[in-house]
């Protein structure tokens, strides 16, 4: 197996691009079926555009699941770490703006800091999700346990 980097090699500020995803209604429907989250937020146009949500606002369209975005952010980490570089241990996210069908989202990961504890070596990573307009639609903090 291959080790691409070690804890000592890894520099704070190192960054890489994760998946770039074009969101479609079909994808949202598939995620709903696969995750069993059938909330009408994700399929019911009439409900979304005619309901007054918090703050008196309605949505422009159905929205993607927050947990689908979480899955893409997670994938950025596992594609980088698995199988031999490290473990993806934690991801804390904030879903900041809705993601709609037709949006293109890009995931970016940057190493914010490093830390050795008694038993392991860690990289704290900032994960950002931006859409085609450059809006930051989700952000996250991930914790990678570096194995080598």
């Amino acid at each position: 197996m291959t080790v691409d980097f070690t804890y000592d090699d890894l520099e704070v500020g190192y960054g890489f691009d994760g998946p770039e995803v074009v969101i479609t209604r079909e994808m949202i429907a598939e995620f709903a079926a696969a995750s069993f989250d059938h909330n009408p937020l994700h399929w019911d146009d009439k409900y979304m555009t005619e309901t007054e949500f918090a703050g008196g606002k309605s949505f422009d369209d159905v929205i993607a699941h927050g947990l689908m975005t979480y899955a893409f952010m997670t994938r950025a980490m596992t594609d980088w770490l698995w199988p031999d570089n490290g473990e993806h241990r934690r991801l804390e996210t904030r879903f900041r703006q809705p993601i709609y069908p037709g949006d293109t989202i890009r995931i970016r990961v940057e190493v914010a800091s490093k830390r050795e504890t008694r038993a392991a070596k860690w990289a704290v990573c900032q994960v950002t999700v931006t859409n085609q307009n450059g809006d930051m639609v989700a952000t996250g903090d991930a914790l990678a346990e570096i194995l080598n």
Binding site: N39, L41, E92, T93
Partner: peptide, 15 residues
Amino acid sequence: MRTPGTINMGQNWWL
């Protein structure tokens, strides 16, 4: 969690 209109604001999981 199934209530229509439940909006996920954020999530953290330790694996």
